[in-house]
Design a protein around this nucleic acid. Sequence first.
DNA 1: GAGTGGTCTAGACCACCAG
DNA 2: TGGTGGTCTAGACCACTCA
Lengths: 235, 235
Amino acid sequence: MTSPPERKTGFQDIKAEVTRRIQEGIWGSGTLLPTEVELASQFNCARATVNRALRELADSGIVDRKRKGGTRVIAMPVKVAKFEIAIVRKTIEALGATYRYALVEQSTGPAEAWLRTRLTLPKQVDVMYLKCMHFADERPFQFEERWVSLDAVPAMRDADLSKEGPNEWLLRKVPFTDAEINLSAVGADDELAANLATTRGTPLFRLERTTWLAGSPVTLVRMTFRPGHQMTSRY
Amino acid sequence: MTSPPERKTGFQDIKAEVTRRIQEGIWGSGTLLPTEVELASQFNCARATVNRALRELADSGIVDRKRKGGTRVIAMPVKVAKFEIAIVRKTIEALGATYRYALVEQSTGPAEAWLRTRLTLPKQVDVMYLKCMHFADERPFQFEERWVSLDAVPAMRDADLSKEGPNEWLLRKVPFTDAEINLSAVGADDELAANLATTRGTPLFRLERTTWLAGSPVTLVRMTFRPGHQMTSRY
DNA sequence: GAGTGGTCTAGACCACCAG
DNA sequence: TGGTGGTCTAGACCACTCA
């Protein structure tokens, strides 16, 4: 026989096969799939193998699983897109450009009302306010504004941010448990225009991230990118 | 003894404990974690349980795993943010608003050069071009432009898009295997300004998605949102 | 070559929830 | 309340890769 190696049925094969059946309409929207036991029998493998395959499909938002209810093909899938949020330096280096960082401004003072609201901060907490620039091949790439709770990160007072950006400093020093990311489009004001070498009103892509450590707010960062910046994801 | 229920150690407990140790700096950046066998022994559970915990942490971008190399804490983690991309109607209904859809324009013709490039289309393929609007409580919410390969979706020619948006129609009829999502900020041109009830130059948030079915391009959709729109993700 | 993670198995018990 | 998925176990073999 010239039969090829013929690998055994793995969870990846099952994922592929189930996906195929859904995509080809064999199992249309809302269809109730066979139980794990049945599928295991059909695929001639252990139930755990089927379980892993279906569990991962559920994670991807392809099917919905309920105890006793079985596994169903999701009718209008809420697709989940994963975006990789790397630190700016990595992003720039990935573009093949040379990275440079510059601290523009640094100050400390009590948190303003809007910031306390945004961070869920108790009254009267000191925050450090930072402005910095990230360059790619000496051209402006990203303007960063950041507010750091000195209550959560007292060591920030003594941080040397002349060489290393606050992002990397914080990543090294302070862990966080929760984050909220917010994407939007804004028009350049005079400061943004000046820093990003563009004109007032230019549409710019902005990413804001708020992070907490065990319920306590750590930092809010507002990153505004040079004109034309895009975020991309494949799945 | 008044000992509490004391659930057995599960993979979730292990995930939590490992996460804690990383966050508290017990296992700093780059640290090599104990092997699965060792951890299983420490946690008094089966290796498979540790395996699942560590595998999921690797999926989250917290640790890096290599055969023979062991499991390491990632130094500068590339955070993965998951954004839910629901159909517009769902998004609007989730806001508690009433959804309305309107088809603005529809035409069919050969694909232009830029589109062929964008979709990896072979020469001379007919595409359907669509413009539609999505309203929330009768106010403009999203302007949608779409190009559909009639080669991949011949049934599109006969689709009734007067009541249902092309997005929902396609989701019901045509599966896809791969997608690329692109986020950017654009300034409103005259058409966008008119459709989204704003003024020329207003910064707008845009989401473009290209989808393929088994390597063949299906559709490219360009969704531009009303001023102030944001996308949010928590993790 | 040897150590590590990747995966599968066969069986078991449990928790949730639709009928 | 019974059926279904959720999870764990103890063991096994394999595949990658580092030294």
